[in-house]
């Protein structure tokens, strides 16, 4: 793929989002406002954070099915730690990040040392984390700590009654940080290289084991962070929260133009993919009469459309490359 065909999927995703936004604005008079956009950010912050981690995993040629469960576990752990054990919220946040990072590192190590497929290892991780959260509590536990109500009030006030909330700010920081890490560091180049050819990457002297462990550590730690944001958003901890979010995250990544087979993709595309999913939800809530299951159906159709689109652009790029071979050297 040349530079243009690489950017094409992201451009298409962005266009779909803009067209979708335009359609919504024409349908609903109050839609086109900063307030709706900010709410879009807040409501999908937890998904955006976890999808950034998923982007790294998928570009490296892997998959992480455990993130939804890690979010669920994080919310339950926070509720119990803060409410029952009396741990200060900030300390509990730190503990969640450390636990989830270690969990991801363990999965990455299992993938590397036992040469297991990421699908199986993270599937096991999914059951483990979900099971552990059920073990701690099967009920929804409200979090009443002062910091939670305090953080919920904190927001950057923008014109038109719009509020940039703390979850939204965290997501934006994660997206920006993810872009820098993926596109501007050696680690990011290694992630792409792994997705391009694992064997070659190892032969080029890249520490493949270390890179893989780091990728899953990052994904899990971001899932932990997403769990913190989710508990802020709902002010509670519940072992059944964020069921299936791993699939929403994968959908966002793929809609964002990342190739599921690895090697190609952008964090920005994932961000837009998250916004598109949020946009569909918002449309349904504005409409009021549609069942929320339509969101799933629309996401499914979009996924099909984007995967088809990717195959076509890939095919075109390969054909044009065949015509161009040999003429490149001076």
């Amino acid at each position: 793929m040349n530079a243009t065909s690489r950017l094409l999927p992201v451009a298409a995703t962005t266009a779909v989002f803009l067209i979708g936004f335009l359609v919504c604005s024409l349908t609903f008079p109050n839609f086109a406002s900063l307030r709706v956009v900010m709410n879009l950010f807040t409501d999908n912050a937890f998904l955006g954070i976890v999808a950034v981690g998923m982007t790294f995993v998928i570009i490296s040629g892997g998959i992480d099915l455990s993130v939804g469960s890690v979010i669920g576990f994080s919310t339950v752990f926070l509720a119990i730690a803060i409410e029952r054990w009396g741990v200060p919220p900030l300390a509990a946040f730190l503990a969640v990040l450390v636990i989830s990072a270690l969990f991801g590192a363990a999965m990455g190590a299992a993938i590397e040392y036992f040469e297991l497929p990421p699908f199986i290892v993270t599937l096991a991780g999914m059951f483990l984390a979900r099971g552990a959260s059920f073990l701690m509590s099967t009920e929804s536990i409200p979090i009443t700590a002062d910091l939670y109500s305090h953080l919920a009030e904190q927001a950057l006030r923008l014109p038109g009654g719009a509020r940039l909330t703390v979850p939204a700010m965290i997501m934006i920081l994660v997206v920006l940080g993810g872009m820098v890490l993926l596109h501007l560091t050696r680690f990011g180049a290694n992630v792409y290289a792994l997705g391009g050819s694992r064997v070659s990457t190892a032969l080029m002297g890249v520490n493949v084991t270390r890179t893989t462990v780091l990728i899953y550590t990052l994904s899990s730690a971001l899932a932990g962070l997403s769990g913190i944001v989710f508990s802020l958003y709902t002010s509670s901890g519940y072992s059944l929260s964020a069921v299936g979010v791993e699939l929403d995250a994968i959908a966002a990544v793929v809609i964002g133009g990342t190739l599921l087979s690895g090697g190609y993709g952008f964090v920005f595309g994932t961000f837009v993919g998250v916004l598109i999913q949020g946009l569909i939800q918002t449309y349904i809530s504005f409409d009021g009469s549609l069942s929320s299951w339509w969101a799933k159906i629309a996401t499914g159709l979009l996924l099909f459309a984007f995967i088809g689109f990717q195959q076509v652009t890939l095919g075109l790029a390969r054909r044009s490359r065949r015509h161009a071979t040999g003429g490149a050297h001076a």
């Binding site: 793929m1 180049a189 792409y192 290289a193 997705g195 391009g196 050819s197 064997v199 070659s200 990457t201 032969l203 080029m204 090697g263 190609y264």
Partner: peptide, 11 residues
């Protein structure tokens, strides 16, 4: 060729 085909020549 044991290189990463998806990365730039420079990378």
């Amino acid at each position: 060729v044991n290189l990463a085909p998806n990365l730039s020549v420079a990378q």
